[in-house]
Structure formats: C-alpha cells, structure tokens
Simulated assay, not measured.
Amino acid sequence: MLTELGGKGGCLCEPAKSGTLRCPLIVRPTSEDVITGHLFGTLQAINPRWWLPDFLNHALGVERFRRQVFRKLRIVLWQKQPKFPRWLIPWDEGQTEVDVVITWENPPTTVFVEMKYGSPLSANTTHNNGHAGYPADQLIRNARIGLYQCGCYQEAKLFEFLPRDFSLILLSPKTGNPLVERYRDLGKFRESIPHNGRLATLPRTPFIGEMNYLVLLNILDSNQRFMTKTEQRLTDQLNDYIQFKLDQLISKQSDN
C-alpha cells in the first residue's frame, strides 16, 4: 500500500514498471493478490461483528447472519483445497486455491470469497474447458468444492459429521455478474453439477452472492462509530486504498 499510494517503499526501475523486466518486488497495478491481502489483512484486525454479518447479508440479499461472537473465527488467504474426488466428475482436476476462506463454529460455517479486480471470472479451469458438457467457470468449481468440503455430498465415510453451512461470495469492482444470477437458481445450479444426485443436502438458500468494493466500504463506514480508535484508523486507511485502486482501474480501462 505504501508503495502504491505514495511511493514510500522506494522507487522501481523503469524496465520493471513497463513489464520488460520481471521484478519479484514490483507491485503490479492489476494484481488481485495485492488488494486481497491488504483488504482482508485489515479486516482481520477489525471486530467481525462490525463487518462480517453485514458483508454476507448484503452479498446474499437476505438477512441470514446476525451480529454475534464468532467462535474460532479464521480468515485464511489462498488456501489450497483437497482435490475434488474423481468419481464425482468426468475429468481430472487439480487442486483449487480459494482466495479467501472464512470459518467459524457457532454454527459451523464456511465462506469462500472469490476475489476479482482487473479480470473477469475464468470461463475455463485447468483440465476442464466444458468438454464434458458441464460449465467450467471458476464460480461453479468453487461452489462444488465448497459443498464437498462442507459435507453436502452423500458418500461412505469412516466418521460421519453434520454438514457445515456454506456460502460463496464474488467480491469485485462491479456487481451484476450473470453467473451469480444463474447459479442462484437451484434448478440451473444442480444441472451444472455432475452427479448432482449425490448432493444429499444443500445449505440454506441463497448461498451464492456478490458484492462490490464500494458497498463493503459503506458497510465499514456505517459501523465505524462502534469501532475502537485503532479500528477506525484502519478503516480510514482501507477506504483510501480501495478508492485509489478503483480510480486506478477506471483510468486503466479508459486508456484501453
């Protein structure tokens, strides 16, 4: 953030800025990882009571989550998920790395957040270009993997456990992604999942949603009066950074 906002981290050479030199220290303007790390690194330091329920409720469009003490709350970035079972899909699939995984235990809940900044959702994923007759985009892949990890598939297990609640949120500069609307329709969602008859249960609906960065900033701003001075300062800094990144994105799009 210091490098991007004010050059406080030092200067980068011109070849690195232009992209002709692959510099490992460069903060690339289009990097989704940079904005993901700063955004959720800051949110981890703010009491989740003041952002997490509102974030999920706004993204899903329903009042599903309440303000509470989130027991055993964890926010993990870029978490690799176990490979999806081969017997549930007609293609070989590698590991999936989820941008943000949020979990807590009262009740047992898992949230996947797919982050987008300067690029759209991928229409195809590794080893799957839709050749098997099912959608191959990032959103349906993350949904399918999340449901499996949360115990929604029927299979023989050594130890049984109750399914976890699950939500999948697309966080991007703009809302209105057609894939989100498509997969919120349970009929279309099931049609997009191989062996959907193995889905013994589904989370409370809707469990797929989306939000843009400005709405998240508004949530933080509306709850700022309840925060500590430190949290308020962090919120102000985050607001400055996200606004800077959105302006940067608009400028880049206008240049193109």
Rank of each mutant, 00 (worst) to 15 (best):
L220P: 06
R233C: 04
Y183Q: 04
N177G: 03
E210I: 08
G209T: 03
L202C: 07
L214A: 12
P194K: 01
L170Q: 06
G187W: 08
Q224K: 15
L171C: 04
R182T: 09
N212E: 13
N196D: 12
D221M: 06
L199K: 09
F244N: 05
E155N: 11
G187E: 14
I250S: 12
E231W: 02
G197W: 05
I242Y: 00
Q243D: 08
S172C: 03
F166Y: 09
L238M: 07
L158Y: 02
L179M: 11
A200W: 13
L217N: 05
K174N: 09
L202Q: 02
D240I: 06
P206N: 11
M211T: 08
F207S: 08
R198A: 15
D165Y: 06
R233W: 09
F159W: 13
P163H: 03
L171N: 00
I169Y: 10
F207P: 09
R190V: 09
K188E: 14
S222T: 04
K174I: 01
K188Q: 15
G187K: 15
T228D: 10
I193N: 02
P194Y: 05
I250F: 08
R190N: 04
Q224M: 12
S251H: 09
P206Y: 10
L234R: 13
F161A: 13
I219D: 12
E191S: 14
A200R: 13
A156T: 14
Y241C: 04
K245I: 00
D165L: 10
E231N: 03
Q248A: 10
D247M: 11
E181K: 12
G197D: 11
Y241W: 14
Q224V: 08
L186H: 06
S192C: 08
K252T: 13
E181W: 00
D236N: 13
Y213L: 07
L158C: 06
E160G: 09
L170S: 05
S167Y: 11
L217V: 06
F161I: 01
E210K: 07
K229P: 05
N223S: 08
R233S: 14
E160I: 00
M227Q: 06
K157L: 14
L162S: 09
K252D: 15
V215N: 12
R164E: 12
E155R: 14
I250K: 15
E181C: 01
S251F: 07
D240P: 00
L249A: 09
L249E: 11
S172G: 10
Y241P: 00
P194G: 07
N218L: 03
L162H: 13
R190I: 03
L179K: 14
L171F: 02
P194H: 05
S172Y: 01
L246V: 02
L162P: 01
A156F: 09
L158R: 09
E155M: 11
L246E: 02
Y213E: 02
A156C: 09
L234V: 01
T235H: 00
V180L: 03
L179H: 10
T228S: 15
M211F: 04
L162A: 13
T228G: 08
R233K: 05
L214V: 14
T230Q: 10
L217K: 07
N239D: 15
V215Y: 05
I169H: 07
D221H: 12
L214K: 11
Y183A: 03
N218I: 00
F159D: 08
A156I: 13
L220T: 05
Q224L: 05
T228M: 02
